[in-house]
Design a protein around this nucleic acid. Sequence first.
DNA 1: TATTGTTATACTCTATAACTATA
DNA 2: TATAGTTATAGAGTATAACAATA
Lengths: 148, 148
Amino acid sequence: MASDVHVFDRLLEIALLVQQDMGRELEPAGLTPARTHLLWEVHHRGPCSQRALATALDVSPRNVTGLVDALEERGFVRREQHPTDRRVTLVTLTELGARTTAEMATSHRRIAAHLVAGFPADRLERFCTDLDTVTDRLHELMDVAAPS
Amino acid sequence: MASDVHVFDRLLEIALLVQQDMGRELEPAGLTPARTHLLWEVHHRGPCSQRALATALDVSPRNVTGLVDALEERGFVRREQHPTDRRVTLVTLTELGARTTAEMATSHRRIAAHLVAGFPADRLERFCTDLDTVTDRLHELMDVAAPS
DNA sequence: TATTGTTATACTCTATAACTATA
DNA sequence: TATAGTTATAGAGTATAACAATA
């Protein structure tokens, strides 16, 4: 049963499932996948400029404007002035945003725990190592192939 | 290094990378991710009704209409009459569509082979088994949680 | 009456290009 | 001159609702 194709098909399937899961219960609150992704990024990086977010998400600055607009309108983030550079807008989490991302993190942990429940320590260890390898090679492929 | 959270983060990362990769060289030809997904489905199922595609892709019938319109316009698929039920439109691959999906399959095999290159047989075997387990559990989670 | 696909309408995500305010 | 963010415009993906043709 173990074959190369199998691996790719599985990864594709997993990609679809994970994507579907991200922000399914969140959509009612206006947290679409793209907005969730941005919120998640701010959660990890702390207050940051929209420019930085555009780069991090590999998306146009214009797009970030729209996403931040929507998130601000719904109370998840706040736009603040950069202390020294007046061109820059700093995006920060509101209390609601912080609470929401904290819940997401908890949810991720719960899901991940369920996914590998019952794996003996050494098996989990190997699985993580292999996942790392595959991820690294995917990154390589993307970077090498990217320069159109 | 091996931990539950690690697994989820990796899967999320992989999801993003795989998604990005799917149809990057194809976009110039008008093959966006959603259209590619539909094309891929027809490749696997053979000629099928738009209704069946809507169900398979978990998407509205209206959406399928648009995707098939675009694919037909670009010569990847053809609409044909169902032999007995005149309500039904059968979507089939054109020669171009068949050639394109064949190339995609080849590309998948090449990528997958690279991802697990150098894995000894038993390690690949275990990795596939674990991927299967994780995929199955993801499916479970989605199905259980889905009924809103 | 139920089903298939379509038209109508609307919202989200995304991009490029032109513009404003600041460095 | 270069950078950060915005307005303007456009294409793609998605959904619901109403409708036509067919079963």
